[in-house]
Amino acid sequence: MKRRISLVKWATFEFKFEEILSSTKEYDMETVSLTHHSSWFSDRKNYALEFAHLLKQFIPIFVKALLCRTIVFGTNACRILYIPAFCNSKVILIINEIPSKFNIIDRIFLKHLSSRVYLSSVERLNHFEDLFGTKFGGVVPNIPIMTDVDLNQTKYENKIIYAGLINSKRLPAEVFNTIDNCGYILDLIGPVINYKLTNFKCDYLGVLTQDMSQELQSKYRFALLSYMTDDINNDLCAPIKVYEYVNNYCVCICVNDNKGLVNYISMYPNLFVRLNDLNEYTFVLDDYIFERNEFFREENLILDKSVRTFF
C-alpha cells in the first residue's frame, strides 16, 4: 500500500521534486497550495484580510501536519508549522527564501529540526550551517516543471527578456541605460510595483501565467537576472528563473555579482554573463548546449540525492 504524503506549498509553480515524489510507487501525494489574499501583491496591502485569509487555510493544515507525513515548501509556511514539525518527525521543511531576520523562535526550531530542513541552493545551505553551527538536511533546488523547447526556434537577438517583480530596486535606471547603450531592447514580464516604466526604453508585456511566460522566454536569446546584494536573501539568490531561462536556451545576463550567481558565472561562462561584459560575449551553440546539459545534470543530481533522504 502506498504511503500518503501531504505537500503544503506557498507557490503557484509546480516543481521537479513534486514530480519525483509523484512518480514513485511508494508514495501517494496530496498537494495543498496556499495563497495570499488578492490585495497582497499590490500597493494596497490589507494585513487584516491577509491574516484572516491565511488563518482559514492553515487551521486544517496544522492539524494534519501533526499526524501525517508532510512536506512544507515555503519559508513562512515552514515557520507557521514549526510546532507540527517538532511533534511529528515525518514533517520535512523546505526553506526557499532566507528571512531578513531570525527571531528567537526561528533559532530554537531551526536548530532542533535542522536534519529535516532543506535549503534551495548550496550557498544558502552553507550560510545556514555557518550561522547555526550544525548540519542541515540538504539542498532542494527550485527546479520547476518545464516543457521541452524547440532548439531551432528563431530567437530575438537584439532583445532581452526579464521575468519577475518590477520595481526600482530590481531594475534601477542604470540597468535600463546600460542595456540601451549595448544596443538591446528590454522586454518585461511581471507585476509592476510603484514604478513608472514610461521613463525608460522598454516594452512591458504584462503579467503572464507560468506556461505563457516560459513560452515567451523561449523566443529570446538573452534573459536578465537582477537581484540586489544589500540583503542576504537576494545576495544568495536561488531564482526559479535560472532554470526557466537555461531550459529555454537563453543566455542569463547577471546585473550584479550575487553570491548565489557567481559560481554559475565561473562554471558556465556560455550560459551566464555579467551585464557589463555583454558586448564581449559571443554565443556559440555547441558550447552552450554542452554547458546546458552539464548544468541540468548537476542540479538534478543534487535534487535527486536530497529527495531520497526525505523519509
Rank of each mutant, 00 (worst) to 15 (best):
Pro144Asp: 02
Met146Thr: 12
Thr147Pro: 09
Thr147Glu: 15
Asp148Arg: 10
Asp148Ala: 12
Val149Asn: 04
Asp150Met: 05
Asp150Ile: 08
Leu151Ile: 14
Asn152Arg: 14
Asn152Lys: 15
Thr154Asp: 14
Lys155Met: 10
Glu157Asp: 14
Lys159Tyr: 03
Lys159Ile: 01
Lys159Glu: 11
Tyr162Gly: 04
Ala163Met: 09
Ile166Trp: 01
Asn167Asp: 15
Ser168Ala: 14
Arg170Cys: 02
Arg170Val: 00
Leu171Asp: 00
Ala173Gln: 14
Ala173Thr: 12
Glu174Gly: 03
Val175His: 03
Val175Asn: 00
Phe176Asn: 02
Asn177Lys: 14
Thr178Tyr: 06
Ile179Tyr: 02
Asp180Thr: 13
Cys182His: 10
Gly183Asn: 08
Ile185Gly: 05
Ile185Pro: 00
Ile185Phe: 08
Leu186Cys: 03
Leu186Val: 06
Leu188Ala: 00
Leu188Thr: 01
Ile189Pro: 02
Ile189Asp: 07
Ile189Arg: 01
Gly190Val: 06
Gly190Phe: 06
Gly190Tyr: 03
Pro191Val: 04
Asn194Ala: 15
Tyr195Arg: 10
Leu197His: 08
Phe200Tyr: 15
Phe200Pro: 02
Lys201Pro: 08
Lys201His: 15
Lys201Trp: 11
Asp203Thr: 13
Asp203Pro: 01
Tyr204Cys: 08
Leu205Ala: 04
Val207Pro: 03
Thr209Gln: 12
Gln210Tyr: 13
Asp211Val: 09
Met212Ser: 14
Met212Gln: 15
